[in-house]
Write a protein that binds this DNA or RNA. Structure first.
Length: 808
DNA sequence: GACCTGCTGCGGTTTG
């Protein structure tokens, strides 16, 4: 293959740019030229993206005169912003190589005129989002557009894999493969624990020959830890880390450009304010970047990063992707990154040239988090990178997809069944389930058959169509799997946009209150036309918005590494500075209680004026702890009449009662046994309530709830109540409803992390349970105690309060 | 001995 003209042309071009292809790139080219599909994996900065683009060009030059008759390659990216960067780079390469191909972008940003142009004539390369693929599939005679297509590349496949957006990709691919049986599919993925599975999901049950190309290159990453001077004075609890601010500035000063990652938007607001206050001279060269900041401002920040005009950007995971090609040389992570993969990904944002070393600084927000720093380092060495679990049997996405087909050219049930079954997601879909789905979409099912708007499909000949123009239009507006909370725009009285804020947060403010957004101190004036009007605030004190985000638990890999680190600390094996500096804390923990070894589970009984506490430390992340706490409480209360309140964090959980908690050596093992888990979970956890919450998104994705036209506001409460109503109706009148079943499955899988819980209980069954009776609060229990106190002190939502006061 | 938790991502056609 190496002596083909295309290959040589590309090599010459790379040489002229003083670039040499990596071995893995050449391997990818070989596979591609042999007509295979597959997955490419390499660290950031090694040209994964370009290797495939070049492979396509090689093939094409080899084939002689270029087919300039429409779409050849579809390039799927999860981010609109990424599409622009990649498009620019491709155009440049095509220009230099004198290849007369056009590159187009199809996303929500694409102008109407451009869309029409694309309709008349597709560009040879189209960069597209998963959602936009489905929008194309929702158009009449869509098949024509894909007539010449021979390659689909899914960029950042690891990002899409674990979500319903990944299912959109799977479904889109199964349709395209039917249209173009020779289609070559390539994924590009960062390193994850289940690369083989990632390939399987991408390929579905297609029999095409496939390969994984892994780069045998190691990216050098240096992890530095920002250590407090006196560990005795560093807080045992907390999440902010602002006390170490003075140690951060030298790091920033000594770098050209720094990204400072925080875990929440609120936290980034605080850090931004505090840095500005302590070092006003940073004013012109620092910026804030997170999901609630106005899109235009964010684009400006990204551009300024590009040109190197900014010295510091304080951000959340909004900058996790898409800062390649940018001169970032230092990354600071404030607080736990919760997982190894995320930490590596952020580290990779710096020094992305192949030979450059990536520098990442870890800043602990409380003392015990230092152990996490040591655990992260070891996990990186051992390559313990988390897996992304593919979504299976997402009926809601399937319903949406069928509607997509129905509004364009209709679908034949048998053909589509075969295609859908060829995806990884729906490979185990049962014929009865398929029949149920068709019936549900045609009649509205058992519960909704008297409502016209739920009778969406009509069988005409042997094809299902949606004949209602109104429903079709609604559907095209609702393609996608991301369901957001209601956001309001924030604007100065005098005009000028600041950002977005959740309706929920604003609803709790009164006119005159001050809050902080986009680094500004703002005074709330009023809400008008769904816009929050504000003026600059003179008040020194302001409320930092809290958003209703997800709660990411500590990953299983990191939890495992943490337990090992405690074991090493206990036995004096650990030599890292992060651990040795914690000596006084460990000594105190050991004196008051115990440091658990790797084969031990620690429980602490502590009596305070609040009552009787039982602390348990499995280190399995807060979701598992929440369910474990409920399970343990329920099992205890089955034998004794006793009531509890519950608190938890990523390291452990607490049961609190007004009477002594009857857990000791004789029954502890049994109370945490994996036996009867399923049945006991049913009784101890309010699964119906959890499922109800999951159902909201499912109902929106499946198209049962209309969210309103873009730009027009429909209050979130409507959404919430109509979803709840549908949930009740299905629950009472249509218990076989697949969407209802999906809601329960999602609650068990994602909310309770049932599989991980079972693993944990099985692990504990083989461990020794150490029970201690400390005379006062220990360093281990302190963070949990503080968190539970905070919840009592803040304006708790009634729902949460009730949840906590559940009496068994 | 004490704290300001909770991320990100997408999205309009058809026909008059």
């Amino acid at each position: 293959m190496k002596n083909t003209p295309g290959w040589q042309k590309i090599e010459q071009w790379l040489a002229a740019k003083e670039l040499k292809p990596f071995a893995f790139q050449e391997e990818a080219w070989e596979h591609y030229l042999h007509g295979r599909s597959g997955l490419v994996n390499a660290p950031t900065g090694f040209g994964k993206t370009f290797s495939l683009f070049l492979a396509v060009l090689i093939r094409w030059v080899n084939e002689g005169s270029p087919p300039t008759s429409g779409l050849q390659m579809l390039w799927v990216t999860p981010l609109r912003a990424l599409a622009k960067d990649i498009g620019r780079a491709m155009e440049e390469a095509l220009h230099e190589l004198r290849i007369p191909w056009k590159v187009g972008i199809r996303s929500g940003d694409t102008a109407t005129s451009e869309r029409e142009q694309q309709k008349r004539r597709m560009p040879e390369i189209l960069i597209i989002t998963p959602e936009s693929i489905h929008i194309l599939l929702a158009q009449k005679e869509y098949a024509k557009r894909f007539e010449g297509l021979h390659t689909v590349v899914i960029d950042e496949w690891h990002e899409l894999l674990g979500s319903k957006r990944g299912v959109l990709v799977e479904l889109g691919l199964c349709r395209l493969r039917s249209l173009r049986p020779q289609l070559q599919t390539w994924g590009i993925s960062a390193t994850i624990g289940n690369l083989d599975e990632a390939l399987d999901v991408l390929m579905g049950t297609a029999t095409a020959s496939k390969a994984i190309v892994r780069a045998e290159v190691n990216k050098a990453i240096e992890v530095h830890c920002i250590l407090p001077d006196e560990i005795e004075k560093y807080p045992w609890a907390g999440h902010l880390g602002i006390r170490l601010l003075h140690k951060v500035l030298p790091v920033i000063r000594n770098s050209r450009t720094t990204l400072l990652f925080t875990n929440t938007r609120g936290q980034s607001e605080i850090w931004y304010q505090q840095i500005l206050k302590a070092y006003p001279d940073m004013a012109g060269v620092m910026a804030l970047h997170h999901g609630s900041i106005d899109a235009e401002l964010r684009i400006w920040v990204e551009e300024a990063l590009h040109t190197g005009a900014l010295k510091l950007v304080v951000c959340t995971s909004s900058l996790d992707l898409g800062v390649d090609f940018r001169p970032v040389d230092t990354v600071i992570q404030v607080g736990s990154p919760k997982g190894v993969a995320r930490f590596l990904q952020r580290a990779g944002r710096s020094g992305h040239q192949p030979d450059a070393v990536s520098h990442i600084w870890f800043l602990p927000t409380h003392s015990l988090e230092l152990v996490e720093a040591a655990a992260l380092k070891d996990a990186m060495k051992a390559n313990l990178i988390e897996s992304r679990m593919p979504v299976v049997l997402a009926y809601d996405v399937l319903l949406q997809y069928l509607m997509t087909l129905a509004v364009s050219d209709g679908f034949n049930a048998e053909e589509t069944w075969a295609e859908v079954r060829s995806t990884f997601c729906f490979q185990s879909l049962e014929p009865e389930e398929w029949q149920w789905i068709l019936a549900f979409m045609t009649t509205g099912g058992e519960a909704l058959n008297s409502y016209d708007e739920f009778r969406k499909l009509h069988l005409v000949g042997d094809r299902y169509y949606c004949t209602s123009r109104q429903l079709a239009m609604r559907h095209r507006l609702h393609i996608g799997t991301i369901v957001s909370d209601a956001m309001l725009k924030v604007r100065y009285m005098t005009g000028g946009f600041i950002g977005l804020i959740e309706e929920y947060f604003i609803s709790r403010l009164s006119p005159g209150d001050s809050f902080s957004l986009s680094g500004n101190n703002l005074e709330f004036v009023m809400i008008k036309d769904m816009t929050v009007l504000v003026r600059k605030s003179k008040s020194k004190k302001s409320i930092v918005p809290s958003w209703n985000g997800g709660r990411m638990p500590l990953s299983a890999n990191l939890g495992m590494m943490l337990r090992r680190k405690f074991h090493e600390a206990m036995n004096g094996i650990a030599q890292e500075e992060e651990i040795t500096i914690l000596r006084p804390l460990f000594d105190l923990q050991q004196l008051l209680s115990h440091i658990p070894q790797e084969n031990e589970l620690l429980m602490e009984h502590i009596e305070t004026k609040d009552g009787y506490h039982l602390f348990v430390y499995p280190f399995e992340g807060r979701l598992v702890h929440e369910v474990m706490a409920a399970l343990l409480a329920w099992r205890i209360s089955r034998q004794h009449s006793i009531s509890f309140s519950i608190a938890m964090n990523d390291y452990g959980f607490e049961l609190l009662s007004d009477q002594p908690i009857p857990v000791d050596d004789t029954n502890a093992q049994e109370l945490l046994s994996p036996e009867n888990l399923a049945a006991d979970l049913q009784s101890s956890v309010n699964a119906t309530e959890m499922a109800r919450r999951k159902f909201r998104d499912i109902a929106v994705i499946a198209g049962l709830i209309f969210q309103g036209y873009p730009g027009k506001h429909k209050a979130n409460r409507h959404l919430q109540s109509s979803a709840s109503l549908l949930f009740n109706v299905f629950h009472d009148y249509d218990p076989q409803n697949l969407l209802l079943r999906q809601a329960f499955n999602e609650a068990f899988f994602y909310q309770m992390e049932e599989a991980r819980l079972r693993d944990t209980l099985e692990r504990i069954a083989g461990q020794k349970i150490v029970i201690t009776f400390p005379q006062r609060l220990t360093p281990f229990c302190f963070p949990i105690k503080v968190d539970s106190l905070r919840e009592q002190l803040t304006s708790e939502k009634l729902e949460d309060r009730i949840k906590k006061m559940i009496v068994w």
